[in-house]
Design a protein around this nucleic acid. Structure first.
Lengths: 152, 152
DNA sequence: TAGTTTGGACAATATGGTTGTCGATAATCA
DNA sequence: TGATTATCGACAACCATATTGTCCAAACTA
């Protein structure tokens, strides 16, 4: 029966994601950001976007707060985020993206855009825009979905 | 700076994949195939497509043979594949998809197609076909990429 | 036949996720 | 106000899925 069209599509979506991410991560390594995972990138964006506590990050990333806390620890050890006590709430540890963290976001974002541009050159900018727009319509954005990933 | 268009696209690709897979896995559970992960589905398809040894499966899935072997063990325990000695090569353990395995492939494929149809209804069949075709052009199919996945 | 590849297994390890529990602080409401 | 409830973050135990490295036996190959 050959692979179903639907399964094929799923594989393409995953393949596309990995293709972009592998590219970006490899280049990031070359540009002074070794040890970065795609998940870090996305978590960092979420933090910068307002998820300033571990619990909130967990909610936005749709993972448990414990998982989020682990990611934060990693990000902290890599020097991308800092934590400080919240003066208004003694339970909270406020997260703040460091300058190096912002640098990573900038570089990472540019690299993602590079890949996207390469893709645009291949199938045409209009087609890619349409692809992205349609995908956006299909996938109700759950704030910031960044799960998965692997390869050390 | 908002999220870069490129990063956005990557997230959408991942989100789309997860959206399809979560749906299919949940429905599969309801239809008598509990414990199945998307990775199993894809591995099974690869095996049925000719990856009849652990090493070969690893190559096609682009993971280590050890990882492939573990997947095979899982698939075997779930009753989806069988192993038998290769009469022509004493090192090999030949893999064979069981009838239940084929049943899973059929049902799983249909479920993926269902999701795809729902998507087609949302953005129009032509748009979805174009999306898939373009994605296919961008992602040089590496035989059968099925990595990632998570949530127990 | 000697040397190299290959298939599969085992062990150790890493990553990234999960529950569950807990103490401390905040928030709510009776 | 004071008691209950909710939330934050941390710790522990665990699980799933990968990874590398090592190893042996079997199969090519020069």
């Amino acid at each position: 029966m050959a692979t179903s069209q639907g399964a094929e599509l799923a594989l393409l979506l995953l393949g596309g994601f990995h293709s972009m991410v592998d590219d970006v991560v490899a280049e990031l390594e070359r540009r002074g950001h070794p040890g970065v995972r795609a998940a870090h990138e996305f978590a960092l964006r979420a933090i910068d976007g307002g998820a300033d506590t571990a619990s909130e990050l967990g909610r936005r990333l749709d993972v448990s707060k414990q998982a989020a806390a682990k990611t934060i620890t990693a990000l902290e050890q890599l020097g991308y985020v800092g934590r400080e006590a919240d003066p208004g709430d003694a339970r909270r540890q406020l997260l703040k993206v460091t300058p190096r963290g912002h640098e990573l976001m900038t570089v990472g974002g540019a690299l993602f855009d590079d890949v996207r541009e390469r893709w645009a050159a291949q199938i045409g900018p209009a087609a890619l825009d349409a692809l992205q727009a349609h995908l956006g319509a299909l996938v109700e954005r759950r704030a910031f979905g960044a799960e998965d990933l692997a390869q050390p």
